[in-house]
Computed example of a mutant assay.
Amino acid sequence: MARLSWVPFAFLLFLVVFTFTIQTANAGKEGSLRPQDCPNACGVRCSKTHHKKPCLFYCNYCCKRCLCVPSGYYGHTGECPCYDNIKTKEGKNKCP
């Protein structure tokens, strides 16, 4: 009976590794976020700008529409085509 005590631990470890693998496989892809995840993702994206308020506003707007925020602080918009395709009237990128 004592030999079976590792089975629940092994199962729990498997679940944790499996869940982490699924989450990292979808990271940065379109639709990988939930609307409630947008403020945290945009907080990271806009953390190094001097214009935090407008950056957070437009990043959250774009994130809620696309459910994706590119990785990093700047660029990498190819990771989220929807995020990259939202333009202003002048044809510039709306999403930071």
Rank of each mutant, 00 (worst) to 15 (best):
residue 70 P to N: 15
residue 41 A to F: 07
residue 40 N to K: 00
residue 51 H to V: 12
residue 75 G to F: 07
residue 55 C to F: 12
residue 62 C to H: 08
residue 87 K to F: 08
residue 14 F to D: 03
residue 12 L to T: 11
residue 35 P to Y: 08
residue 48 K to I: 09
residue 26 N to G: 04
residue 73 Y to D: 07
residue 70 P to A: 13
residue 91 G to P: 11
residue 88 T to K: 05
residue 94 K to N: 04
residue 63 C to L: 08
residue 94 K to D: 10
residue 9 F to S: 13
residue 42 C to P: 10
residue 48 K to S: 14
residue 89 K to S: 15
residue 23 Q to M: 05
residue 59 C to Y: 07
residue 23 Q to L: 09
residue 22 I to E: 03
residue 15 L to V: 03
residue 67 L to Q: 07
residue 10 A to V: 15
residue 14 F to T: 14
residue 37 D to K: 03
residue 89 K to E: 03
residue 86 I to A: 06
residue 16 V to T: 01
residue 47 S to I: 05
residue 41 A to M: 01
residue 73 Y to G: 11
residue 48 K to E: 15
residue 15 L to H: 05
residue 22 I to M: 02
residue 20 F to D: 05
residue 42 C to V: 13
residue 3 R to G: 09
residue 53 K to I: 03
residue 54 P to V: 01
residue 19 T to A: 05
residue 51 H to A: 15
residue 14 F to C: 05
residue 30 E to D: 01
residue 86 I to C: 09
residue 38 C to R: 04
residue 76 H to D: 04
residue 83 Y to G: 05
residue 16 V to Y: 00
residue 49 T to E: 13
residue 16 V to A: 06
residue 54 P to R: 11
residue 22 I to R: 06
residue 56 L to G: 12
residue 76 H to Q: 13
residue 59 C to G: 06
residue 58 Y to L: 12
residue 3 R to K: 10
residue 95 C to M: 02
residue 39 P to S: 08
residue 64 K to C: 13
residue 18 F to W: 00
residue 30 E to N: 03
residue 22 I to W: 03
residue 89 K to W: 03
residue 13 L to D: 02
residue 31 G to R: 04
residue 60 N to Q: 15
residue 79 E to Q: 15
residue 71 S to K: 14
residue 93 N to S: 15
residue 39 P to W: 11
residue 36 Q to I: 09
residue 18 F to Y: 09
residue 42 C to S: 04
residue 2 A to L: 06
residue 44 V to C: 10
residue 33 L to M: 10
residue 84 D to E: 11
residue 61 Y to K: 11
residue 8 P to K: 04
residue 60 N to S: 07
residue 55 C to Y: 00
residue 6 W to F: 11
residue 51 H to Y: 12
residue 19 T to G: 00
residue 84 D to M: 09
residue 28 G to C: 14
residue 92 K to N: 14
residue 65 R to D: 06
residue 67 L to P: 06
residue 15 L to A: 14
residue 76 H to Y: 14
residue 50 H to D: 09
residue 70 P to V: 07
residue 70 P to C: 11
residue 17 V to M: 05
residue 23 Q to I: 02
residue 60 N to M: 10
residue 13 L to M: 08
residue 4 L to Q: 11
residue 8 P to N: 06
residue 42 C to L: 07
residue 40 N to I: 06
residue 55 C to I: 05
residue 79 E to Y: 10
residue 32 S to I: 00
residue 32 S to F: 02
